[in-house]
């Protein structure tokens, strides 16, 4: 019984990895940037809107993880209530497809949080340089998007 459903277990594990790792990364990143944002707002509440945008930047990886999780659940039929029949090999393929956004999401969100915290320092001293300051953490986003793309393409490409 268990052996015949292992494919589904692996696939579900893939969806969980995408959501869990990318979400955890975002939580860490938003937390780091949040500490910096709170520091600035303590002294200068007028900068709230600007630093809030900075704080939210590392939150996107969690959304990407959620997106891949949804696509995966939809692919394996769990969302519709009729789980697909799949071999353990197919399940492992889905798990592998979910790894890019999971791992890159975790690392990039934390790094983006640190870059955001540093950029919040720029906004604190030179609010007119907000646009430039936002570019530094935004650059980290590139790699999260690349991994999201590969995860979506890979999950969709697997024949179930």
């Amino acid at each position: 019984m268990l052996g015949s459903n292992m494919g589904l277990v692996y696939a579900l594990l893939g969806a969980a990895v995408a959501v869990f790792l990318a979400g955890a990364g975002s939580a860490i990143g938003v937390g780091i940037a949040g500490q910096a944002a709170a520091g600035v707002v303590t002294e200068d509440p007028s900068k709230f809107a600007k630093v809030l945008i900075m704080q939210l930047l590392p939150g996107t990886q969690g959304i990407y993880g959620l997106l891949v999780g949804f696509i995966t659940l939809s692919k394996i039929g769990l969302l519709g209530g009729s789980p697909a029949e799949m071999t353990a090999f197919q399940g492992l393929l889905v798990l592998a497809a979910c790894l890019p956004i999971g791992i890159v999401g975790l690392i990039s969100a934390k790094s983006q949080g640190q870059a955001s915290a540093a950029a919040i320092g720029i906004v604190a001293k030179k609010p007119d340089q907000f646009g430039k300051a936002m570019l530094f953490p935004a650059m980290v986003e590139t790699y999260a998007i690349l991994s999201l793309l590969i995860s979506i393409l890979a999950v969709n490409a697997i024949q179930i």
Binding site: Q35, A36, G39, A124
Partner: peptide
């Protein structure tokens, strides 16, 4: 140890 909050607050104070 990280001093993210403290440093950001200091950055805001450095303006003055």
């Amino acid at each position: 140890e990280q001093f993210t909050y403290a440093v950001a607050r200091i950055r805001a104070l450095e303006v003055s």
